[in-house]
């Protein structure tokens, strides 16, 4: 087995994820691109576990399991935030979110459709 093949696949998947996070406006698509990046890292961890003889056996696979659990937690909280944003703004475009607005006043605002 040539270790370079899965390593390069993981690197390319990570690049696709970075591109998606920077390119997409829709927050759900940004979350999908983040999942791609997490999967690329998982693939590299599992490949390293298979090809490197470590002091602790199966460390890479254990880390991959931990990353999968973290991804599940991340997507749960992320989707709660996205749905709350949609409830406030009727839009999930990430580049129209004003980060400097006070949160309390935003809750009282009526729904606005951003351009």
């Amino acid at each position: 087995m040539r270790p370079v093949i899965p390593y390069v696949i993981g690197a390319l998947l990570f690049g696709a994820g970075v591109y998606g996070v920077l390119r997409r406006r829709n927050a759900v698509l940004v979350l999908m691109a983040v999942e791609l990046m997490l999967n690329a890292v998982n693939l590299i961890l599992v490949t390293a576990d298979t090809t490197v003889r470590a002091a602790l056996p199966h460390g890479g696979q254990v880390f991959a399991l931990f990353v999968i659990v973290l991804a599940a937690a991340e997507v749960g909280v992320g989707l709660a935030i996205v749905l709350q944003l949609y409830r406030l703004r009727a839009s999930v475009a990430v580049d129209t979110v004003r980060l400097d607005a006070a949160p309390a006043s935003e809750l009282d605002e009526p729904r606005v459709t951003t351009s």
């Binding site: 390593y7 390069v8 690197a11 390319l12 998947l13 990570f14 690049g15 696709a16 994820g17 970075v18 591109y19 998606g20 920077l22 390119r23 997409r24 406006r25 829709n26 698509l29 475009a93 580049d95």
Partner: peptide, 21 residues
């Protein structure tokens, strides 16, 4: 309307992916 301008994203994403590869 799903996308923002693509050139910086393509530069950074392609650079990260191909550089790591």
């Amino acid at each position: 309307d799903l996308n923002r301008p693509g050139l910086p994203a393509a530069l950074i994403g392609g650079g990260a992916g191909l550089g790591l590869a």
